[in-house]
């Protein structure tokens, strides 16, 4: 098994410009069942590069193809509208790659789609999800990994690839890798993914990559201690050297100046270790710790 996406995933792509087409084509070549592109003004035409139909609305695409998943790659100003459209069309899993979405837009989207709508939203500002051998939705380079039993969840794209790559070199594959994204408001939290991994019979160990800012890693750590104390869990928190009050690339990667604490990498590491979780000092060490735990 795997979580969130698998061989039954049918993807529509919202945002079929150069970027959307490039990545959707890669996803299709990997074996992902991409079923349609969405463009409000090009309904009824063909998406040449993927040889698929274009629908004007997500609703039409769902009716015509039975799509259950959407990959959102529209520009930031249109992202709120695109996610709400997918939600209203009955899409079950909305994976939003776009970065730069305003906080107030995401706050509203989260409230409608996730909190009250109960729909799976991943991202924004995330690399997507891969369940190796089954489906790849987003921009994750699939040849860095292979099927296996480690579940991976991360706020950072490249750090995830690094860990998958080192695990693969040691012959270790993954069940699913979920890039949850680097923004302050994201649809799916660490805890949501870890709960799903805990319920997945094919995920035997979990690796997670956190960052400075927010308090989601701590919530996940507490849940791990209380619910799955025997599952091997390895983590890494990026940003030990990040100064307070400075945003480090990702909009959510900032330790609030004079805040209530708990947002720095050192504080997160200490709290997680208190919950019995091995926290590495860098991504390679995290991969090595996992290899040792599974060896």
């Amino acid at each position: 098994m795997s979580i969130f996406i698998d061989e039954n995933t049918k993807v529509v792509v919202q945002g079929i410009g150069a970027q959307g087409t490039f990545h959707a084509k890669r996803n299709q070549a990997y074996g992902t069942e991409v079923v349609a592109g969405i463009h409000p003004k090009k309904g009824g035409t063909t998406w040449e590069e993927l040889d698929l139909p274009v629908h004007a609305t997500v609703k039409e695409a769902v009716e015509a193809t039975g799509a259950n998943t959407s990959m959102v790659m529209v520009p930031a100003p249109f992202t709120k509208g695109a996610i709400l459209e997918a939600y209203e069309a009955g899409i079950e899993t909305i994976i939003t790659i776009t970065e730069g979405v305003p906080v107030h837009d995401m706050t509203e989207v989260y409230d409608t789609v996730v909190r009250r709508g109960g729909v799976r939203l991943v991202g924004p500002n995330c690399p997507g999800i891969i369940s190796p051998g089954k489906s790849n939705v987003g921009i994750i380079p699939a040849d860095t990994t292979m099927p296996g039993n480690v579940g991976l969840v991360s706020r950072s794209g490249t750090l995830t690839y690094q860990i998958m790559h080192e695990l693969a070199e040691a012959g270790i594959g993954i069940s699913t890798c979920v890039g949850i994204g680097g923004d302050p408001v994201i649809g799916t939290q660490f805890l949501d993914v870890i709960e799903a991994f805990a319920a997945d019979p094919d995920t035997h160990a979990i690796a997670f990559v956190g960052e400075i800012g927010g308090a989601e890693e701590q919530l996940a750590g507490q849940w791990i201690r209380d619910n799955i104390p025997d599952t091997p869990v390895v983590g890494y928190i990026a940003g030990f050297e990040a100064p307070e009050g400075k945003q480090m690339g990702h909009a959510g990667a900032i330790v609030k100046e004079g805040g209530e604490g708990g947002e720095s990498a050192a504080e997160k590491k200490e709290l997680l270790e208190g919950y019995g979780i091995s926290v590495a000092m860098n991504p390679s060490e995290a991969a090595q710790l996992m290899i040792e735990r599974l060896g």
Partner: peptide, 24 residues
């Protein structure tokens, strides 16, 4: 580096080796 997370990790590894990063 490429990717915010990887660059943050780079600052960390530089510090762990006794240096300090000049920038992100």
């Amino acid at each position: 580096g490429n990717g915010a997370g990887l660059v943050m990790a780079t600052l960390d590894v530089v510090a762990q080796n006794g240096g300090r990063a000049a920038n992100f």
